[in-house]
Design a binder for these strands. Structure first.
Lengths: 225, 225
DNA sequence: ACCCTAACGCGAAATCGCTCGCGTTAGTGT
DNA sequence: ACACTAACGCGAGCGATTTCGCGTTAGGGT
């Protein structure tokens, strides 16, 4: 039988292979920044990078495959703060996410990958894995806060980090408005307040009863209406 | 000169035109529910609806155009509650959004439209307009709360409603996990707490200083660091 | 009840995206 | 330094999508 036949770029990843990869990904990024995902085609990428069309198809199968690879490249995008204070960390991270997505290129990349995920299964898993990993490590930020006793110990770190990211992606993908500093501030404030209120506990949120909320502590409401 | 030549379906919207439209949109919805956007093609829609392929292309140009039209159809999706209490309304609405997106069909539609928006300009504007309108009317919910004095008077209604929606779309499009009741509860709690904390004020959020938050009232912090 | 034409059905034709087979180039191991 | 072969360049070719021109059907106005 044939020995599994893995796709190009795997068995001999050095030298020329690496160069073409870099050239292609650069071209994709540039094209994406200029015209967005709509104007992105294998043809254009081939011309811009100087790499032959057939090679592109061989290694990446489709434009979707290309933007997926570009996403995995961008892993080292936003560094996680560690100031010793969770609310400070949240605010700082929100600002970094904000500035990260204020510029068009990364916005476009997210659009492209999400768009791809709806079309090819591979992009779906790449996207899911990417953010799953990122959420995992970002959760460390919250875990340190728990250890310091800043928030309820049963706070779900990933839920908090999801809440911190969500508004930005909502703005980019749904509301389709600009990401600005106000959004970052608002989000940081909101997430911190919500965390204190116990909205992100592991077994589901404990509802805030009535009006004024006893904000700290581990209040429990056993109503199950 | 030729008299502008508007696309089919505009000048004579009754009778047969309306029937084909209905048949086609039904087919799109069905196909979308079953196979998702990836499996959606003009060919399949034509077969399923019994409408000829050429007609589809004439009226809607592409699958993206079709899902756009389907979105505008789904306007009457989630009714807005009005219980007389903002936190109750928020929780109820969150639950409705939750159940709405728990089932696959609407999830798929959102995926499809967002995916389309990255590719054709028309979808971009359709999506933006749709959610802009929806945010506008949903904001009434918050405005009533302001009139009742439940939240700070300078609360931004649309910001609150964005915050209520964001986690669901994050879950669907980014985290790619299931939308469940927990998410709805968590979101409702979080948004209410954040609103009380003043995270969604019109001129940008007033940061929550320090640890315990004076939750009600209109505290002001003039620090601008 | 009649005409007018928008919208549709039909099949052929053109276009586009994508793949395939073969020769060439350049890493990599000995 | 040499051999081996992964990865690339090239252009023809295939299939699927999209369009076109024409005849037909059926609303809407008078």
């Amino acid at each position: 039988m044939t020995p599994a036949q893995q796709p190009p770029g795997e068995t001999r990843p050095g030298g020329r292979t690496a160069r073409t990869r870099a050239a292609v990904l650069d071209a994709v990024e540039a094209e994406l920044s200029e015209g967005g995902f709509a104007a992105l085609s294998m043809e254009r990428i081939a011309q811009r990078s100087g790499i032959h069309l057939a090679t592109l198809y061989r290694r990446w199968r489709s434009v979707e495959g290309l933007v997926c690879e570009l996403l995995t490249e961008a892993s080292t995008g936003i560094p996680l703060p560690d100031t010793g204070s969770l609310p400070e960390d949240l605010r700082l991270l929100a600002r970094r996410i904000g500035t990260f997505y204020t510029a068009a290129p990364m916005r476009r990349l997210v659009e492209a990958v999400v768009s791809s995920a709806a079309r090819i299964p591979r992009a779906d898993t790449v996207l899911a894995d990417f953010f799953h990993d990122r959420l995992q490590v970002a959760g460390g930020l919250v875990r340190r806060g728990i250890e310091r006793g800043e928030v309820p110990p049963d706070t779900d770190p990933e839920a908090v980090m999801s809440a911190l990211g969500a508004p930005f992606y909502y703005r980019i993908l749904i509301a389709r408005g600009p990401v600005d500093a106000d959004l970052a501030e608002s989000t940081a404030t909101a997430v911190w307040a919500a965390t204190l209120a116990g909205a992100y506990r592991v077994g589901g949120a404990t509802p805030v009863v009535g009006r004024a909320t006893p904000v700290v502590g581990r209040q429990r409401t056993d109503r199950t209406d």
